[in-house]
Amino acid sequence: MLHVDTLHAHYGRAHILQGLSFHIAPGCALVLLGRNGAGKSTTLKSLIGLVRPTSGRITLAGQDIAGHEPHAIARAGLGYVPEDRRIFTELTVMENLEVGRLPPRDGRPPWTPERLFALFPNLAAMRNRPGGRMSGGEQQMLAIARTLMGNPRLILLDEPSEGLAPVIVEHMVHAIRAMRDSGVTILLAEQNLHFALAVADQAAIIEKGRITWHGPIAALQADPALREAWLAP
């Protein structure tokens, strides 16, 4: 579904992504694990085009997207849920969803507000509430729902469990599994190993802008030394 090949990215003169390569098969859920500042968010931003990669190849379902405009990449089927959610605070829940709406894709049934409310029941009760007056967890759900309205082939989730209460995290796990079951491929950036284990089947470890390990998440679970390596400060 997604192939990333020797991706480089800079912020000004700081070389952040230093030749990153990985790939995700259709229908899989890959988690990108790494310490603070390892480059997880930068990777996702480079994929969606908010950071312009300096070199490297990115293909989504066979289509080259590296260096394209964010809106073109989104229309090609990449959905992006940012770390800080970036809900439109002045817009209601329904309006936030409307901004994310794109035409249906591949003849699959499109995501509708009703389907999303079934996935995130909390949102159903607050259709007309402005985004600025929602809790962090509600905003996180809305951010994911808004991106799903674009019927993405692959969704990028940047630390969706960050700062959420355990109950809400539980909720999020269910929602992401349901998303996957409906055929959306998932790329998750995480620090929370438990959350990652609950939703992902593949893992990649990123360190200083490079992928240092890539494999099934079960292998990671079975290898405490490896876990130590990326969890240790």
Partner: peptide, 20 residues
């Protein structure tokens, strides 16, 4: 709705597939 959203955060609107 798109215009109001772009008034708040134009990059996010672009990331959602809207041609700014």
């Amino acid at each position: 709705t798109l215009v109001r959203a772009a008034t708040e955060d134009r990059d996010m609107v672009a990331a959602l597939g809207v041609d700014q």
